[in-house]
Amino acid sequence: MLSNSGINKVLLLGQITGDPFINNTNRSENYLCFMLVTNEVIKKGVDNVAHNEYHRIRMPEKLLQQESITLEEGQTIFVEGKIHTTTIIDEQRIKRYNLEIVASKVELISIVPVVI
């Protein structure tokens, strides 16, 4: 039987761009924020074109302490989480949407070069 609840789950594998920083919000919890870039190759006609997608990641600070890892620019990581959308109205009274991924699990991936 199907339930009325939906699924909000994201799985990403990519590289950290820029330095992660702690965001002190007015909420009770601090978050580590960083950008993650994912790469894919898309076939356009007869050519393969590289496409990069940038994702804003927000990770609860307590999760970082539990995982006992240090995140730095250039690292390859696996992120599991959910999509969170917020809206703001700017000075011109236009509604803007901010989309970010709230991480629930992060794993550091060590990539070993293949020697042929």
Rank of each mutant, 00 (worst) to 15 (best):
M1Q: 07
L2E: 11
L2W: 06
N4R: 12
S5Y: 09
N8A: 04
L13E: 01
G14T: 08
Q15C: 10
D19T: 14
D19G: 09
I22K: 09
I22M: 03
N23E: 09
T25L: 11
N26H: 01
S28E: 14
N30Q: 13
N30A: 11
N30V: 03
Y31D: 05
Y31N: 13
M35A: 07
M35I: 00
L36R: 00
V37Q: 08
T38S: 02
T38I: 05
E40W: 05
V41Y: 07
K43S: 09
K44R: 12
G45E: 00
G45T: 00
V46S: 08
V46F: 08
N48H: 03
V49P: 01
H51N: 12
N52R: 13
N52W: 03
H55T: 02
I57K: 03
E61L: 15
K62S: 13
L64P: 04
L64Y: 05
S68C: 04
T70S: 11
T70H: 07
T70G: 08
E73Y: 01
Q75S: 03
T76E: 11
V79S: 07
E80K: 05
G81W: 01
G81N: 05
T85E: 14
I89Q: 10
D90Y: 02
Q92F: 14
R93T: 04
R96D: 11
Y97Q: 14
Y97I: 09
N98D: 11
E100A: 07
V102F: 11
K105S: 12
L108P: 01
L108K: 09
L108E: 01
V114N: 05
